[in-house]
Design a protein around this nucleic acid. Structure first.
Length: 895
DNA sequence: GCGGACTGCTTACCT
DNA sequence: ACAGGTAAGCAGTCCGCG
């Protein structure tokens, strides 16, 4: 490791954001900071001088010509009154900033005639008003062409977003007035963020970089036949997936700020305290830590990783200047929570220290911090995204903290500290700070850059920028994808009130109070141990139904009298027989691409491994979109919210599973249980299953598949509660208390050892001997509990706070009581935090683990806990708790 | 005044 | 801030009880 001391003045380039011709941000004026002599008296431990290698990124404005670049970002420049694109050339590490030269302007639509608008002084007198023109749109809700008036303005805020905006003047006669300008621009120019473009003679042109070889395209004719009415849609989507996914150069960053005291997180809006460390990490790029010396803090003597450079400063301003130089040369900056902390803090701190805006390479948005050159990806909102957690990472992490995510995904967490940040010696601080950025980087690089690939694919499918994709949720991705297809086809984008007025009614009653319509059905399980159970399920049931039944907001309850016969079973709804529904086609295509192409191809051994893994990622990303489409149409916040559409999908789901249940019985099979899209069938023959699958394809038009086969499955009398031994010898547990997060660890441990016994059981006889072993395990656990041998951590009940403490107004649950005690003792409690508490006798109630003693534990309450947890297992195994306790020497365990 | 029956709130799970 | 369905524990309320 080399230490570099630095505190002298450096000249920062002023950032140029004005237009004119090609402006190249040349970095040659910049002297290497590292060549400057150390001012500090101290000697470097290693005299060998090494240049820190950070490739300078070349930035060019308004390029005339460029090589193929990936489109990363689109935004509006207020000073230029133009949209601009950030195009990155990964080969040569060059960033091009291309300003719109197509004379595109912000606009909204209205049904008020053009002449009337032109007579309206209130609108034409708006300082930003540019003009009005007639456009013809197709109104899907009323199935007719209409002439609309397009009102153009110089500034997006003039359309919507300010008090005197044109959309406010139009009252309820404005359409497409809530679409952010950058998104509207992308749609109108038919751009695909994440795809390749080049500039030729100043004009922006798409570049096709196909990587899929012709020999893998064998299935295309099938798709072309099925989608002949939507061949453009098919080809555009296929192109997205068959275009090379480039490897993007990126650097992760993390900062530490001097906190004034225990448990006080510095406020990034005030930025009152000094930045004491900033680290950068990249696989093939810089690994640096910039550390501020403080008179009261020793340097320390831990050894840091040899590949890392530590640079010390005596002056915070100098530190920040150097950090800004680094940021200027980073095309993609990765942070964890940079929007709300790291970048916001640096920005505000720089302002507070007297930096001018032109010296700061960071831009501040309402909720997003971005870079002037390059783009900023904040991994926190991306990993926090529920769809990503569930479908891409199979719920690997339960809490969206850097520590929890990296532990779950990388197998290593943050550096554990036994002191507060402000107490650490400089080297320990440097190490801590560096490891955070290293982990952050690794979250994007692990598994062959999986996360980066996913982000690029989501950009291409949703047509959203890297900035928006990483910060917005699945509903925004789907909304934008559907809006884009509206614009491409000249369809008017309907307003929420238009859809609700035409379609907004449900006809079923939800089982759960407060829900809008009836959802899936769960078949009551036949309790007991069943051997040789085959589970069949429908592949992507809801998306399949949406495709099969032509479900879309414009086709459900359409206006044609003749379609009213085409009923959705057990609802008042019908669906159009004349027009193909747009969302039905889009979802159907994504579903077919996944099921008929990417899923099988990702398992095809004749395809090279790297190609297969790309197919696998594409399949995963498609799954995210497909699985959420039904849900968004049932969500009030979704602007295409269509209750009868969501209700019909669920109703058809119930119909499908009910018909299949009946058919299975008719065919002589014994269905034991089913949930939403699955059926558990007792010991069927291969032929029976094949017949059922064939029937489903022919009669329902939906693919039924074998999901899993149990050697035995123990169904309890409760729904969504069972365990079984799969053919591969693994135990499958669903819904039982033993796997819930809030169950104390000692219960889970006991539960797990019981599972260990059950895993070896294959026949009914073996269950008998297993019972004895299980009994012994329970007894041991019970004795340990009685003898207070479990630690507080083992006994802790871990419950997440879903909101801030003061929002619990109706009741005060136990974890809230414990959290209140924590707060009284000066500990910080935030929403999302998991509270660890134990049940106590003295005083009766609960205490957070931090404040409790083993002697205070209410052992009786824990006996109850152990009993209920294990009863669920024993219940499923047909072991009566009373019987077991009778066999035991202890006559009654749990009194 | 106290305990059981009941409802509602909250969390964590399943599909 | 993609849906609804199920289980469990506890908080709070009502009601009966001389």
């Amino acid at each position: 490791m080399r230490l570099i001391y630095l505190s002298s003045q450096t000249t920062l380039l002023s950032f140029i954001t004005s237009k004119s011709d090609d402006k190249t941000l040349d970095t040659k004026k910049e002297k290497s900071l590292l060549q400057k002599k150390p001012k500090s008296q101290e000697k470097s431990k290693n005299n060998e001088s090494k240049e820190i290698v950070i490739d300078k990124m070349h930035v060019e404005y308004n390029p005339k010509n460029t090589p193929p670049c990936i489109l990363l970002d689109v935004d509006y420049d207020g000073r230029e009154e133009k949209a601009y694109l950030k195009l990155y050339d990964p080969e040569n590490n060059r960033l091009y900033i291309w300003y719109d030269n197509t004379n595109h302007h912000p606009y909204c639509l209205t049904d008020i005639p053009k002449e009337e608008i032109e007579r309206n002084k209130d609108i034409t007198g708006h300082p930003s008003y540019l003009g009005a023109e007639e456009v013809v749109k197709f109104d899907l809700l009323n199935e007719k062409s209409i002439t609309m008036t397009k009102i153009l303005a110089r500034d997006p805020l003039a359309i919507g977003g300010s008090r005197d905006a044109i959309r406010e003047k139009l009252k309820n006669r404005a359409w497409e007035a809530h679409i952010p300008y950058r998104k509207s621009y992308i749609m109108d120019l038919n751009l695909v963020p994440g795809a390749f473009y080049k500039v030729k003679d100043g004009a922006l042109l798409p570049v096709s970089l196909k990587v899929i070889e012709q020999k893998y395209m064998d299935i295309l004719p099938y798709f072309e036949k099925e989608y002949k009415e939507n061949i453009d849609l098919l080809h555009s989507f296929i192109e997205l997936f068959f275009t090379e996914i480039p490897n993007l150069k990126r650097v992760a960053m993390d900062i530490e700020v001097l906190s004034p005291g225990l448990d006080i997180v510095p406020d990034p809006n005030k930025a009152e305290h000094p930045v004491i460390a900033v680290s950068f990490s990249a696989k093939d790029g810089p690994k640096e830590i910039h550390v501020l010396r403080r008179s009261d803090i020793p340097e320390g003597n831990i050894s840091l990783p040899p590949e890392v450079d530590v640079i010390y400063y005596d002056n915070e301003k100098e530190l920040i200047k150097t950090v800004f130089e680094r940021i200027k040369n980073i095309p993609i900056l990765i942070t964890f929570n940079g929007d709300n902390f790291d970048l916001k803090y640096l920005y505000n701190r720089a302002i507070a220290l007297g930096f001018s805006h032109s010296e700061i390479p960071i831009t501040k948005g309402k909720d997003v911090m971005n870079l002037k050159f390059g783009v900023h990806i904040d991994l926190y909102p991306f990993f926090h995204n529920r769809s990503i957690n569930v479908y891409a990472f199979s719920m690997a992490y339960k809490e969206a903290s850097l520590d929890a995510i990296s532990k779950a995904i990388l197998g290593k967490g943050k550096v554990e500290l036994d002191k507060e940040i402000f107490e650490l010696d400089l080297k320990t601080l440097a190490y801590y700070c560096y490891m955070d950025s290293e982990i952050t980087y690794e979250l994007t690089s692990y598994n062959d850059d999986l996360v980066m690939k996913m982000i690029i694919l989501i950009m291409r499918i949703s047509k959203m920028t890297i900035i928006d994709v990483t910060r917005q949720n699945i509903s925004a991705w789907i909304r934008n994808m559907i809006y884009y297809e509206h614009r491409r086809n000249g369809y008017l984008i309907p307003r929420p009130e238009d859809i609700l007025r035409e379609k907004g009614q449900t006809s079923t009653k939800a089982i759960i109070k407060g829900k809008k319509y009836m959802g899936a059905i769960v078949v009551s399980p036949k309790a007991g141990i069943h051997f040789n159970v085959v589970v069949v399920d429908f592949a992507s049931l809801y998306p399949s139904l949406i495709k099969q039944w032509n479900l879309s907001y414009e086709t459900i309850r359409c206006h044609h009298p003749e379609c009213r016969e085409n009923r959705i079973p057990k609802t008042n709804h019908w669906v159009c027989t004349k027009r193909k529904g747009l969302t039905s086609v889009i979802v159907g295509l994504l579903r077919d691409l996944r099921i008929k192409w990417f899923k099988p191809k990702s398992k095809d051994k004749s395809i090279p491994e790297s190609q297969r893994s790309t197919f696998k990622v594409i399949g995963q990303v498609l799954k995210v979109f497909i699985n959420a489409t039904y849900g968004v149409f049932g969500s009030e916040h979704f602007p295409l919210y269509c209750p009868p559409l969501a209700e019909s999908t669920a109703a058809l789901g119930r119909y499908s599973i009910e018909e299949t249940y009946k058919k299975a019985e008719e065919m002589g099979m014994i269905p034991l249980y089913g949930d939403t899209d699955s059926l558990f069938i007792l010991n069927p023959t291969r032929a029976q299953i094949d017949d059922l699958i064939k029937w489903s394809t022919e009669y329902l038009g939906i693919d039924l598949e074998i999901d899993k086969v149990y050697k035995w499955v123990a169904l309890s009398s409760r729904k969504k509660n069972y365990l079984g031994l799969l053919q591969d010898g693994s135990i499958d547990v669903k819904g039982l208390l033993g796997k819930k997060r809030n169950t104390p660890e000692f219960c889970k441990k006991t539960f797990k050892s019981i599972l260990g016994v059950l895993q070896k059981v294959e026949t009914r006889d073996e269950f008998e001997s297993a019972k004895k072993k299980i009994l012994k395990i329970i007894q041991e656990s019970y004795n340990k509990l009685e003898a207070s041998q479990y630690s507080l951590q083992d006994l802790a009940i871990k419950v997440q706070l879903s909101k801030s403490l003061k929002e619990y107004t109706k009741t005060t649950p136990q974890h809230v009581k414990a959290a209140l005690l924590l707060e009284q003792n000066g500990k910080r409690v935030v929403p999302g935090q998991i509270v660890h508490y134990v049940k106590t006798v003295t005083p009766p109630g609960v205490k957070p683990v931090e404040l409790a003693k083993l002697s205070e534990i209410d052992i009786a309450k824990y006996k109850d806990y152990l009993r209920t947890t294990l009863e669920q297992v024993l219940d499923a195994l047909e072991i009566d708790f009373e019987t077991v306790s009778g066999v035991s020497q202890i006559s009654s365990w749990f009194d």
